[in-house]
Amino acid sequence: MFEARLSSATTLKKVLDAIKDLLNEATFDCNDSGIQLQAMDNSHVSLVSLTLRADGFDKYRCDRNLSMGMNLGSMAKIMKCANNDDTVTMKAQDNADTVVFMFESQNQEKVSDYEMKLMNLDQEHLGIPETDYACIVRMPAMEFARICRDLSQFGESLVICCTKEGVKFSASGDVGSANIKLAQTTSVDKEEEAVIIEMQEPVTLTFACRYLNSFTKATPLTNQVQLSMSMDVPLVVEYRIQDIGHVRYYLAPKIED
């Protein structure tokens, strides 16, 4: 028996919005420590890794490890039927071929359930090595989304250059070029507005705007985003999900042909 309850459907709606741009379907691996999802986008360029810890749920029970392959388009149709303040419960029997989403209104007067067919997905799992990154940037998630959106207009690639002083985002193309520099915050009044840089070595890397823009669909989950970078290894874009886990995106830097 698997059962996971969240007191507000908003979190699950936001999680789904954060991954469905990149993934059409994905396997939710459930065990007694929580729910894990790891999947590459269709073109195998980026990797999405989602962790929802058992202790972050209002109720969580998972008697046996369970892998639930879901069509995220179908899941989105179902999640659209939940109000933000509904309680949402996901339920499945052991070895089931369906999952049930149950929504309960705050006053308990409306209860809906949606049963969705599960899929057998043959997905490759990747081992992500522990890495000490040369630069780690923490910045407002909204600001990062804005920069990716703005600079995408000027080119299909975004260059991120990180030094001790700050981080510079650049794009160039037919129109011309664009640069946005963010200085490291000197006095932190509001932590969620701060730009913090932990640098071992400066790095300059080039990334595809298209994927960065997809990653920023996770922006509503949190105030701050963390970018971890080293030369010649994938960028990690991490959004923490308050009290329950995180979604991380991995994207390989573009390289000279």
Partner: peptide
């Protein structure tokens, strides 16, 4: 010209 490598080039397939 820069090209986009697959993420599979960086992580081992388990």
């Amino acid at each position: 010209r820069k090209v986009q490598p697959s993420i599979k080039n960086y992580f081992n397939i388990l």
